[in-house]
């Protein structure tokens, strides 16, 4: 059993090594900053920005991370575990989206119960932050990176503060601060990663 535990820890360490580049941190930070900016400038096409950022991130990872860390195929057990965790995340995401649709329909048809209308008016940001933090926590669980739990807590705290500061019209500030903290953290991790793993020499075909 102890033998299995040691190998399991080694496998987890290898899996985690693929998240020490800081790019996911930067992506998460940009999403949070985007949400904060939406409050300030109320821009409707933010989702397109997120999609573009995601594509850029994936391309960047392929060009920056893979040549430095190398390619690895994880065991079928790990692949199954990752698929299962992603499925759980997708269920939570779908549930959140459905909840949003339900609220939108209730709100737009004026059929929202009065108590819920009042509660949502007061705590909408905190509830949204809670959902967002839950998604980040699920991501932290999937990849086993502890700092992501910290980001989840930071996101939740920022949105609770935003909810409290909303009457003063400065609700964007804590969200922008949280996004900036995560962005700086990601940038520091990326810089360290690039310094620690310079590009290795190219393989030759031996001819």
């Amino acid at each position: 059993m102890e033998r299995d535990k040691e190998l399991k820890e080694l496998e987890q360490e290898v899996f985690r090594s693929y998240f020490k580049d800081g790019l996911w941190d930067i992506y998460g930070a940009l999403i949070l900053l985007g949400f904060g900016l939406t409050i300030v400038i109320s821009w409707d096409y933010l989702i397109l920005v997120f999609a573009t950022l995601a594509v850029i991130l994936l391309l960047f990872r392929r060009r920056i991370v893979v040549p430095r860390l190398g390619r690895v195929k994880f065991s079928s057990e790990r692949q199954t575990k990752t698929k299962r965790s992603v499925l759980i995340a997708m269920v939570i995401l779908t549930f959140t989206a459905l909840l949003g649709v339900v609220f939108f329909v209730l709100f737009s048809t004026d059929s929202m119960p009065r108590w819920l209308d009042i509660w949502m008016g007061d705590h909408f940001l905190a509830a949204f932050g809670g959902m967002l933090a839950l998604l980040v926590a699920v991501a932290a669980y999937i990849v086993g990176v502890w700092r992501y739990y910290g980001y989840a807590a930071l996101t939740f705290i920022a949105y609770v503060l935003a909810s409290i500061l909303r009457p003063n019209d400065i609700e964007a500030i804590p969200i922008l601060i949280a996004g900036s903290i995560i962005l700086i953290s990601g940038a520091v991790i990326l810089t360290r990663f690039l310094r620690k793993y310079p590009l290795p020499p190219q393989e030759t075909d031996g001819s």
């Binding site: 496998e11 390619r71 065991s75 079928s76």
Partner: peptide, 18 residues
Amino acid sequence: MAYLSVIQSADFTFLQTQ
């Protein structure tokens, strides 16, 4: 051997960094 035992396969660069 330890690294290769916990994964399916990997390239030279991966083993070098690990």
